[in-house]
Nucleic acid binder design. Structure first.
Lengths: 223, 223
DNA sequence: ATTGCAAGAATGTCAGACAATCGGCTTGAC
DNA sequence: GTCAAGCCGATTGTCTGACATTCTTGCAAT
């Protein structure tokens, strides 16, 4: 018997649909940081009842994608640079580890997937669609994290990256950032393809550091 | 103006009270892994309404402390050893980093707090109260994580440790585990007190590895 | 300008209801 | 006797409606 053939399908419930919709809305920057989310408005916009919405909001609160202050309701947190830095630092820790492990254990098949996602990002990088750039780049990391052999590493990473999605769109639109990002990602890919753990770690570390620097620039200039 | 004087008090809402109560109940092993949590029962036991309870459950679900399968309701997840291993590995990553940073930046005052918490654990280790042992040990880590200079590291770590609290109680009751744990923690403390980053990292790594080994033993023997 | 107050809006919480679904038990067929 | 089918109770998913509490905002008064 396969160890964990996840055969149980998950019926789509209103709650889950709502969480996904709102999460996506937050990612794409539909809500301004600091803006408040009024329950009654969201209910009519989403066409759902208040209890369902509130459950969804609690999920997002626990993911730290929104804040809920008692008697003031939910709002989009304004990410301070201090917190963003902390996130980038932990992200570095996780990604470096994941890239290193991935280099040692990725299957040829998954390696092809990784190459494909790199090509997808390459194409997006040539365009000016920063949302596509962020999405394809996220796919690239996803594959690495999914093949590092540690599901928790993947889970934690996803949670962190979600919280800085706001920055990533902005920093990707910096002049030349997409292209240099592509170069860094290619380096990571080559190292993993070569099975060179140390190189993969180093390249991964460089990539996060540069992404962090780009985020800082975009933040300083943008606000 | 101080940068972030957290002056806003958080009123206790039913939802938050419920989350805290249930979280504590899970920590102390009141619910067996795999057992289901029936909403109506919890409502009457806690004296709250279903909507409030369901909000609380969504929070706990996002924390991965419970699982909610659509149309089957919430249950305590049975932690596989595979996942537990993954958690210990990430925990190692985080704790090692935190201990290293902590050694470089902890204040004398906080260092005294750390020493105090070590003494508290020492006392608990002499007793047979495994819950007290887990609690005081958690305090010790908390102080380290709180002084590593990275709030995200702390946050992520807390989330992970919460999920293996089940193991910790069991492995602490292993013969001699509390005492050897004490020795390892003392080593961590000494390294931090000496401001020796490398030693702190090494000691911290050793401690997690031993904790993981103890958890495995207790799991193999206990089930 | 600052304070105090009052109206309006939004949230926290509850009660009750109903359809959809799941799990187990009974029944029936082979 | 075993296995399949089907029914029934239990539980969850979701909605509506309601009400007290709290926050916000604008206005009046000092």
């Amino acid at each position: 018997m396969p160890p964990d053939l996840n055969l149980r399908i998950s019926p789509r419930t209103v709650q889950r649909e709502t969480v996904d919709k709102l999460r996506l809305a937050i990612f794409s920057g539909l809500f301004q940081p600091g803006s408040r989310l009024v329950e009654s408005q969201l209910c009519t916009q989403l066409g759902i009842s208040r209890p369902s919405l509130r459950e969804a909001l609690r999920s997002l609160e626990a993911e730290r994608l929104i804040e809920i202050v008692p008697n003031r309701g939910p709002s989009i947190p304004a990410l301070s640079w201090e917190v963003a830095t902390a996130i980038y630092e932990v992200r570095e820790l996780l990604e470096v580890e994941a890239a290193g492990r991935c280099a040692l254990r990725i299957s040829p098949e998954q390696l092809r997937e990784l190459e494909k996602s790199l090509s997808a990002f390459e194409e997006a990088a040539s365009s000016n669609d920063s949302l596509a750039q962020v999405m394809t780049a996220a796919d690239f990391y996803s594959i690495i994290l999914a093949n590092c052999g540690n599901p928790i590493l993947e889970e934690v990473h996803r949670g962190l990256v979600a919280r800085i999605s706001f920055f990533r769109g902005r920093s990707m639109s910096l002049d030349g950032r997409a292209q240099s990002s592509l170069a860094e990602m290619r380096e990571i890919f080559e190292s993993i393809a070569a099975g060179d753990e140390k190189a993969a770690r180093k390249a991964s570390k460089q990539h996060v550091l540069k992404a962090k620097a780009a985020a800082k620039i975009s933040m300083d200039s943008g606000l």
